[in-house]
Design a binder for these strands. Structure first.
Lengths: 207, 207
DNA sequence: TCCATTTGAATGAATGATCATTCATGTGGG
DNA sequence: CCCACATGAATGATCATTCATTCAAATGGA
């Protein structure tokens, strides 16, 4: 088709392979997706993929990196534009639940978690660990802000609350994947927000 | 080795294949575990597996069924022997976190969730859905008991609280799998318990 | 401007590995 | 000697990856 091609075209092609792979990996698992399928989903031939990615493994790595970036962006955006820190956390939860098509993103996320756990030494796992640690750390700041604003009990450990706020997301993903619409993840987030808010109210005895 | 064998021996052999498969499926994913590996983990030859299971798929189904039963048993046991409903919920959480070796059980659970989501019509997915629905329903009863006992705010929707209590578990699994010991899942459960307890305290304004 | 030549992207059939599954053969107890 | 198992090599499928070939654009000499 083209003898020499602009960088923009190369990038676009790479991107479309990445997207095709992401769709298929999420939909039928990495191991059950063939390079042929990725190629035809991307509208090219099997061999051509190898001009853009060295191997299936490297393609997988790129897909995971892209997925991570997407999630990070969601959290960033949600945490930014809000009036109260607690509202921002709830908003971040909602936005994590927002999936473009079906449960694609959550399937990728769980697949990534499994992969990290099974290859803890891989460069991918190391990066993924840093990613989650960073997200939790930034949540922890939001929690402190909420505590300072009197929206959350100041005596609860901010780091633990942040871990709770983070961990509920994959839990909702997993449960929603299984139960489908019977499972109302948004309500769960809402009630968690309520619990946080109420914890701020001065209480008589124990904690 | 044996000419004719007692039913007990047959059952024991079947069981050992099941356990070998469970270990390997959790450790390296279903698709990356070969029948050869399962056979040698179980101490028999590849062909012999087919005397006990029709196919890899059927073996997988049996493994999942066994894993489900194990989890159900944990929840049942934890929910039973406790003084207060809230303590029982917390106890159930702790016991879900208790893993015999590494993260074996949680990896199986997430793998099962992904499989259910990707084959929603399969008999396995249907059973799994019923299983989770039942666990949530029984949690809902515990929540009502806790509300009646004044351990939890009575105005919060019991079903939503039950969903929260259930969904946090796979979330903790996934996060702990990735982060390892940096992630303190027990503290998260504890703080969630605290939030529940505090929600019961009468509060001035809002909810 | 026009054609001959070069360039490198894209193809898809071929290769080699890896597996699930089968089956012809072995083996030991009754 | 026979039966109930077990074995493990052989079979056939499925894939990732490679590579010889094709072909359209780019180049440049006239």
């Amino acid at each position: 088709m083209m003898a020499k091609v602009t960088q923009a075209h190369v990038d676009a092609r790479r991107e479309s392979i990445l997207e095709a792979a992401m769709r298929l990996f999420a939909g039928k698992s990495v191991d059950r997706t063939t390079m042929q399928e990725i190629a035809s989903e991307a509208g090219i031939s099997a061999g051509a993929i190898y001009r853009y990615f060295e191997s299936k493994d490297q393609l997988l790595e790129a897909v995971f990196e892209a997925a991570e970036a997407e999630t990070a962006e969601k959290f960033r955006a949600a945490a930014a534009d809000n009036t109260s820190p607690l509202a921002a956390m709830v908003q971040a939860g909602y936005s994590a639940l927002d999936q473009p098509c079906g449960c694609t993103d959550s399937m990728m996320a769980l697949e990534m978690a499994l992969l990290s756990a099974r290859n803890p030494g891989s460069s991918f796992a190391v990066r993924h660990r840093q990613f989650e640690t960073a997200v939790i750390a930034s949540l922890e700041h939001v929690v402190r802000d909420a505590q300072a604003a009197g929206e959350m009990a100041p005596d609860l450990d901010a780091h633990t609350i942040a871990m709770l706020g983070y961990a509920i997301i994959p839990g909702l993903w997993a449960t929603q994947m299984v139960l489908g619409d019977e499972f109302d993840a948004r309500s769960v987030i809402q009630v968690l927000g309520t619990l946080f808010r109420r914890s701020a109210i001065p209480h008589p005895q124990e904690s």
